[in-house]
Design a protein around this nucleic acid. Structure first.
Length: 580
RNA sequence: CGGGGUAUAGCUCAGCUUGGUAGAGCGCUCGCUUUGGGAGCGAGAGGUCGUCAGUUCGAGUCUGGCUACCCCGACCA
């Protein structure tokens, strides 16, 4: 490509509102152009990078048996109603009202289409396993697009779907996809951390996130500073510190005036917060039900810990939770600020009457607690479980935090880090096959729900992450695997002779199969060098009066400051060895 | 959806306090000179100052509504 004829130009300044480096550089170097918040055009350079990322993904997917295809973006409402997500994704899906009463959603993801296909195409175990994938647009009405290409409203995703007859089949296949993902990120030059996001309940589904640590990221994860263990906040294992006391002291009601918070109470009585229990109240709305049909949930956790709502939802078997109102708390018989289940009728299980009390495991790592007395201005001391109160359910509810001891190596300290989520592997199980009754006959001729997995990587975001990982003060430094061109050729200075030489090189390199961006513009050398650095093609070849006097063309890698003069006759071989 | 910020030429910004005929740099066009790290001189093109309303003889400037965009947070398969 001749730069003099290419569409669009590089910019000397980045738009003032671009904050992330990748956002600034991709715009300045003319890879992308904004159209609206979270909506971008890929310019020719950007499209070339996208195409190369796509190719790498296709190779890795094909290597594990994937079959590339293309699914639609206009989804009839019916397929989303079938899985219950037409309602569930109310705020995020773009909807289109077409002639008559037809309704469509703009593809926010493609599980529904895959399930629809599976019901038609998969009839028996003989038709599985399958791995299908495509690279296609996704549309999500994100409340807050951010970071340029990091969170978009319209974006491009490589999403793959696996179909297996059994859970074992899915479990067996899953690691190969995880490995393929590691290969993809490796080939794109992105050092990702694999984050285990096991979420326990909900049918034993598990997932892995691949994150790139970055302080401006939209995601966060927990990492051990010693063993390298990494996990989601919801999944992170940590060591519960504390022991049961030797002797249980008697329950005693004490006045604690104006002590509404745990810190107040602990200070007033003179103990640490880990010597207290706190009550936190939620209103749970089960999946697919209205809020008024939900129920009150009384959560107990040690005073020094915090409830992770995702863990709570999992413990409750799904749905949504929100903080309960004071009215709802009083209706359950508890006193806000001084609450405990002591003296309340606690439900024995989910079906029984009484208050649903869910306690964190931390309850067992201590005793003789300070706990509310359900009487304004009073707490108990010496509260012990199960002597003094009952709970409906015990579960892991505590959120891992910076400073906790790692649950993997039991030595290191957990640290919370910001990151950009680059990819996600998800065992879906029968989440979509069940509501749509997507079954296949097993060898015994019996229909079985099929097991699905879904696996996604955002290409636009990945492109931005590559730039975040590979740049310097002058511009982008593309890894050669996804660089828009192999060689950035230019002539510096004026003269027909120079231009002829450069053109010959241009043709010679292209004939040899190289992708060459030729800066044939009649501008000063400084402009050309600055643009070459900004655009970031791995190898720069320049011919000028000075280089010819020194014996040939100057060759420089974008990633290094070394320049060398290569005789014109040997240039092709030199480029071959430099790019291989 | 809460909090904060911004909106004037393609890009970066000044002008607003104190209302009086739209500015600079870069970029763009033409000419001449220049050519190894964002060249020089000269001549040009380009803006209903986000939008709607109000105050005023007069609004880019003052007031209010709306919209868009950016940042923090909530949310996010």
């Amino acid at each position: 490509m001749r730069l003099s004829q290419s569409f669009g130009k590089t910019l000397r300044n980045a738009p003032a509102d671009a904050e992330m480096i990748s956002h600034q550089l991709l715009i300045r170097a003319n890879f992308v152009r904004p159209l609206g918040a979270g909506i971008y055009t890929f310019m020719p350079l950007g499209f070339r990078v996208l195409t190369k990322i796509h190719r790498i993904m296709s190779e890795e997917m094909d290597a594990i048996g994937g079959q590339e295809m293309l699914m639609p973006n206009l989804h009839p409402a019916a397929i989303w109603e079938a899985t219950g997500r037409w309602e569930e994704w109310g705020n995020i899906m773009y909807r289109i009202q077409a002639g008559g009463s037809r309704e469509y959603g703009m593809s926010p993801t493609h599980e529904e289409v895959v399930v629809d296909l599976a019901t038609r195409e998969i009839e028996s175990y003989r038709d599985m396993p399958q791995v299908i994938y495509h690279v296609n647009k996704k549309y999500r009405d994100e409340a807050r697009p951010r970071g340029g290409m990091i969170r978009l409203r319209e974006f491009i995703m490589k999403d793959a779907y696996s179909l297996n007859l059994t859970e074992e089949g899915l479990d067996k296949f899953y690691p190969s996809m995880v490995q393929a993902y590691l290969n993809i990120f490796g080939r794109c030059g992105v050092p990702v951390i694999q984050v285990n996001a096991d979420v326990g309940a909900m049918g034993g589904k598990s997932s892995h996130e691949f994150v790139f640590p970055h302080e401006q990221g939209e995601d966060s994860f927990i990492e051990c500073d010693s063993c390298g263990y990494a996990a989601n906040v919801e999944a992170a294992l940590f060591v519960h510190q504390g022991d049961k006391p030797q002797e249980e002291t008697p329950l005693k009601k004490v006045a604690t005036p104006d002590c509404k918070t745990i810190q107040d109470v602990a200070d007033f009585i003179g103990v640490s917060t880990s010597q207290t229990l706190k009550a936190v109240f939620y209103w749970q709305t089960p999946a697919g039900k209205l809020e008024k049909d939900g129920r009150f949930v009384f959560v107990i956790i040690r005073g020094d810990l915090d409830v992770n709502e995702v863990k709570l939802i999992n413990a409750l078997g799904g749905g949504e939770v929100r903080a309960a109102s004071d009215g709802e708390i009083r209706a359950a018989g508890a006193e806000p600020g001084y609450a405990s289940p002591i003296g309340l009728q606690v439900a024995a299980d989910f079906q029984s009457d009484g208050v649903l009390v869910v306690a964190d495991e931390s309850l067992n790592f201590g005793g003789n607690y300070v706990f509310g007395a359900n009487d304004e201005g009073y707490h108990y001391t010496g509260a012990n479980y199960p002597r003094d109160f009952a709970v409906t359910l015990k579960a892991d509810l505590a959120e891992a935090q910076t400073g906790y001891i790692c649950g993997n190596c039991h030595e290191g300290t957990l640290v919370s880090r910001r990151a950009i989520e680059c990819g996600h592997c998800f065992k879906l199980g029968t989440r979509y096959s069940e509501p749509t009754n997507t079954t296949a006959l097993d060898p015994n001729g019996k229909p079985q729900l099929i097991y699905m997995g879904s696996y996604g990587i955002g290409l636009d975001r990945l492109m931005a992450v590559v730039v975040e990982a590979h740049h310097d003060k002058d511009g982008i430094i593309w890894p050669s695997s996804i660089a828009p061109y192999d060689v950035h050729l230019m002539h510096v200075g004026k003269g027909e002779e120079l231009e002829t030489i450069a053109q010959n090189i241009y043709q010679e390199l292209q004939a040899a199969g190289f992708e060459v961006l030729y800066d044939d513009r009649n501008v000063s050398p400084g402009v050309k060098f600055k643009d070459a650095d900004l655009i970031g093609i791995p190898l720069r070849v320049s011919v000028g009066k000075r280089s010819l006097e020194n014996g040939g063309a100057e060759v420089k890698r974008r990633s290094s400051s070394e320049r060398e003069i290569v005789p014109l006759e040997g240039l092709l071989d030199h480029v071959k060895s430099s790019t291989s």
